[in-house]
């Protein structure tokens, strides 16, 4: 564990708490892409299949359980209690391409051809692009609530900090895995426009609006 990874994990934790707070406070999931949330649920379930076979630490297990449970809870609540508060007509990104693309990528680029490793790799590639339906929806509507922007910033910062963590781990431990590094870079690049608007507008107290 190093400071980059710890802060990254805490940002990830914070992002989910902010999202839950937004939905509860505004009693609405408006502005949230259901498709992105569904992809995150798939990401966590496929990544943490080793939950019962590979013990790392209590911290690791608790975080895994929380990420699976909270993403499942959000997907469930968006389908049930908050179903009428968001508009599927705005959430039109074709996630079949992301699901299929990640499958192809994990079949070509992986370190071991085993059940757990293939699903882990799939989750890494899928996570890199899971935010696209959300970003696509925001580019269509041209704006986002401030709390939603904070959620997305924390979520984007998590993977960005993981990239720093991987560089740091390579320098200090010689630990290197190029698949998550590359996927983390892709994800961070996809966030670039969002980060720009977040820093130039939301951090200065203005609304998140695309030019």
């Amino acid at each position: 564990m190093n400071v980059f990874r710890l802060v990254a994990d805490l940002m990830h934790l914070a992002s989910i708490l902010i999202l839950l707070l937004k939905i509860r406070k505004t009693r609405s999931a408006a502005g949230i892409s259901f498709k992105s949330q569904l992809l995150y649920l798939i990401v966590f379930v496929t990544r943490y299949l080793d939950l019962f076979t590979h013990w790392v630490s209590l911290y690791n297990t608790a975080m895994k359980v929380f990420f699976i449970a909270s993403s499942g809870y959000i997907v469930y609540q968006m389908q049930r209690r908050y179903r009428a508060t968001w508009d599927p007509a705005l959430d039109t990104f074709r996630i079949e391409f992301l699901l299929g693309g990640a499958a192809v990528m994990s079949l070509i680029f992986h370190t071991k051809f085993t059940f757990l490793e293939l699903f882990w790799t799939y989750s890494i590639w899928l996570e890199a692009v899971a935010i696209l339906p959300q970003l696509f929806q925001m580019s269509r509507t041209g704006e986002a609530e401030t709390i939603t922007a904070h959620y997305l910033f924390a979520l984007g910062a998590y993977r960005g900090l993981y990239v720093v963590n991987w560089i740091y781990r390579y320098a200090t431990e010689g630990y290197w895995e190029w698949i998550p590094f590359l996927a983390g870079m892709v994800q961070t690049v996809l966030y670039a426009d969002f980060f720009y608007v977040y820093f130039s507008r939301v951090m200065r107290g203005k609304k998140f609006e695309l030019p």
């Binding site: 990874r5 994990d9 990830h12 080793d50 590979h54 790392v56 690791n60 975080m63 895994k64 990420f67 370190t111 071991k112 490793e117 882990w120 993981y162 963590n165 431990e173 010689g174 630990y175 290197w176 895995e177 190029w178 998550p180």
Partner: peptide, 10 residues
């Protein structure tokens, strides 16, 4: 490069 013996990250 270290052999992945199981992933310790989230």
């Amino acid at each position: 490069a270290a052999e992945p013996v199981g992933h310790d990250e989230l």
